[in-house]
Amino acid sequence: MALPSFHSSGVLTMGVELELMLLDPQSHLLTPAALNLLDAMRVRQDQRYVFCPEITQGMIEFNSAVHPRWHSLYDEVTAMRTYLCNLADECGVRIAGGGTHAFQRWQDQDFFPKDRYLALGEKYGYLSKKFTIFGMHVHIGIGDGDTAIQLIRAVSPWVPLLIALAAASPYQDGEDTGFACSRLHVLTPFPYAGRMPAFGDWAEAEGYINRLIDAGVVGSIKDFYWDVRPKPEFGTIEFRIFDTPLTVEIAADLGGLVQLLCARMLYRRNEQPQVYDAYAYNRFQACRYGLVGEMVDPWTGSRRTFIEAAGSLLDELEPFAKELDAREVVDRCRQKLAPGMSQSEAMRQRVGASAGDWGGLLAWQADCFSSGKVE
Rank of each mutant, 00 (worst) to 15 (best):
P4N: 08
H7D: 02
L12N: 12
L18K: 09
L23G: 07
L29A: 09
L30Q: 03
T31W: 01
L35M: 10
Q45E: 14
D46S: 13
R48A: 14
C52T: 14
C52H: 12
N63M: 01
H71M: 13
V77Q: 14
T78M: 11
N86I: 00
L87T: 13
C91I: 03
G97C: 05
G99R: 01
T100C: 06
H101W: 05
F111M: 07
K123T: 14
Y126N: 09
L127H: 12
T132V: 04
I133F: 00
M136K: 01
H139K: 03
I142P: 09
D144T: 12
R153L: 04
V155Q: 03
V159Y: 08
L162F: 15
I163N: 00
L165K: 06
L165G: 02
A167C: 14
P170M: 08
Y171A: 12
T177W: 05
F179H: 06
S182D: 01
L184E: 00
L184D: 00
H185Q: 06
A198T: 13
G200Y: 09
E204A: 15
R211L: 11
V218K: 07
Y225V: 00
V228W: 03
F234R: 11
F239W: 04
R240C: 02
I241C: 05
V248R: 09
A251Y: 03
L254H: 05
L257I: 03
C262T: 07
R264P: 00
Y279H: 05
Y279L: 04
R283K: 13
F284Y: 14
L291W: 07
V292E: 06
V292Q: 12
M295K: 07
V296W: 02
V296R: 13
L314R: 05
D315V: 12
L317S: 11
A326I: 08
R334T: 06
P339K: 01
M341Y: 00
M347C: 06
R350M: 07
D357T: 09
A363N: 06
S371E: 10
G372R: 06
G372P: 10
